[in-house]
Design a protein around this nucleic acid. Structure first.
Lengths: 314, 314
DNA sequence: TTAATTTACGTGTATCGTAAGGATA
DNA sequence: TATCCTTACGATACACGTAAATTAA
């Protein structure tokens, strides 16, 4: 058995069982893949794919299991390469971070600045996506780690490092009735059109759940993927905005009134996630440390809170 | 990188850094290994071995890490082969069991008989050893699983299946004063020369600890690795015997009096252990099931007790 | 038809074995 | 000196690419 063959198997799955595309990915011609797959299947004595005529349709039971193990093999092989690079090009390389718009915009900038000074020769690549995509990216080793809030539940294959917790705030124009109301309740929020995050993003799910549990019907007029857009629409008087507290910037958003809603909604925990079996290079560890240090230093003044030093490995 | 090269790395470590012996293991000439190692080290850009002149002395830090990952790779590759065989030769193969004399002699016979009837074409190999050796065997994939009582603590890389619990009994010639004494205490045992298991075997450690905790000095005249030898010496009037209760056979040992000591010593738990990442073939699973069924059926009548259905994964 | 896969065949590469050359205990 | 490792070199094997055949959409 050859590592090449396992790479091929994985590429085939990743390209929806299309050999030509998989071959392109691997910089080979189709026929090479065809031969590799044959050799592998012959060696194992079992077909790995269910075929319709000549075309691959899906994995067989054997294929599923072999695929799983092949993933483990390639992860370990990757780790070996990382170990090698760690000793030849200690401070050179690429750091791939999967993250949402919110982190990239409000949390990461100072961390990245510091990191770039420490490691000027490490290229930083920020991969944005939905929480679901971020989980996928981390699982497929396409990023070194993902920073995300949702879609991590029950994923026992990740190392999870809790980073900080946060909640929402209401933003309204200063002349709005809610700008100075004493206690703001869920019911109050339902009296006005709401602008908040689209489903699946930035904890929007749990906002809606909270309303539902109180049998309330919020009137969401507009939902956007990121906080800046929500702010714009609040400025345009489209409605009241519910955003993550940390997305409110005292300087630049002084034309909006911000009211903390920490009592009304459940707290969210943002975590760093990477596969348990992944080997972390030094500069990758440093980045994580910098991030943790940043949130513990400047968290409370910016609407979020670092968590006790506890590494939750789920 | 090639799987071959990782195999070579592992063989080198297993043969104490002796290339010639490693080459023999792999059915290659030394020069082939030398070349492989060079290629691997070149590709990684780091030396994996600390050398003294031309000879390999030990692993470097990089080597240690690469070795660890190589182990993972080969374990997964083994699994893939197992998956293949599971579908081509479903009921053919070899079952390697690591076990102590006690299990092999008193627990396994009926299980093995049943298993051989179910799988006449599976070759059974019993590997005997000390608990420490059994752990090693399982870790190096030289056995499919080990059945052992000690030396498992803190091994987070094993799947552990509790099998049964047992304790000790006293065996004496029928005319011995302790044969009919009402309550037997630790002190009573210290009044006579004792024959029991050698250190490191069959829970002997905890027997001695128990005496020590009561500040007692037992007089061990003889220790043996297995129960049959202990019985022989008790028959020869060398002293009183402390053996696992399940080693007392009502029929064949009727010339010896057996007194339960379950109140005096801590209970031992015997477990099945195999690496967490190991793929278990059907017949391997069946063997484990048969073993569990056997102890739950016939345990209590034979001096040991099955445990509640609980899979302790440490 | 077009797109996708398999099979046949030739080429180049790379691994192994043989054998000779150094180094260590 | 005996054991062990490295290097050089030639043979063999095999994976890849080209191209033609085969089969689904």
């Amino acid at each position: 058995m050859e590592i090449r063959q396992l790479r091929t198997l994985i590429a085939l799955v990743e390209s929806q069982f299309n050999m030509s595309r998989a071959a392109e990915k691997l910089n080979l011609v189709q026929s090479a893949l065809s031969q590799q797959l044959n050799r592998l299947e012959n060696e194992l004595g079992a077909k790995l794919f269910i075929r319709k005529g000549k075309r691959l349709k899906s994995l067989t039971t054997v294929g599923e299991e072999v695929f799983k193990q092949a993933t483990i093999v390639l992860s370990a092989i990757n780790n070996i390469h990382s170990v090698g690079k760690e000793y030849t090009e200690r401070d050179f390389g690429v750091l791939n971070i999967g993250t949402t718009h919110m982190q990239a915009r409000y949390i990461l900038p100072p961390v990245i600045k510091l990191f770039s000074q420490l490691y000027p020769d490490v290229e930083l690549q920020i991969h944005q996506g939905t929480p679901q995509q971020l989980v996928q990216l981390a699982m497929n080793y396409e990023v070194d780690f993902s920073i995300c809030t949702e879609a991590l539940a029950g994923n026992s294959q990740f190392t999870l490092i809790p980073c900080y917790q946060w909640n929402r705030s209401l933003i309204v124009p200063p002349e709005h009735p809610l700008a100075d109301k004493k206690n703001i309740s869920l019911e109050d929020l339902c009296d006005y059109p709401i602008v908040t995050y689209v489903a699946g993003f930035t904890g929007s799910k749990r906002v809606l759940e909270t309303f539902k549990q109180s049998k309330l019907q919020p009137h969401v007029v507009l939902s956007a993927a990121d906080s800046d857009i929500i702010k714009s629409y609040v400025r345009e008087q489209m409605g009241i905005g519910i955003i993550a507290s940390l997305a409110y910037d005292r300087k630049n958003d002084s034309d909006l009134k911000c009211r903390d809603l920490g009592e009304l909604f459940p707290w969210e925990i943002t975590r760093i996630a990477y596969p348990k079996d992944k080997y972390l290079r030094k500069y990758q560890q440093v980045f994580i440390q910098l991030l943790l240090k940043q949130v513990s230093k400047h968290g409370s003044e910016s609407g979020y809170f670092c968590l006790p030093e506890e590494k939750v490995m789920t």
